[in-house]
Amino acid sequence: MIVVINGESVSLPAQIVSVSDLLKHYELHEKVVVVEINGEILTGTEHQITRLSDKDRIEIVHFVGGG
């Protein structure tokens, strides 16, 4: 399936079904990240139950230094 992650088009392997799978795939599952799919912001508990679909627009954000 083809999705857009942080503005970049990415082809995902077939075994990636949920947001949790996606985060594991990119080794982000132990990091503090927030995921938004097609404008819907997810809490951590929703990662497991949220399934990905072709053409999803995914934003993955985190906390960086700032004032």
Partner: peptide
């Protein structure tokens, strides 16, 4: 304080 930014997923 912190800012919120896109993560570089290719460099976890």
């Amino acid at each position: 304080t912190f800012a919120i930014r896109r993560m570089n997923i290719f460099e976890p």
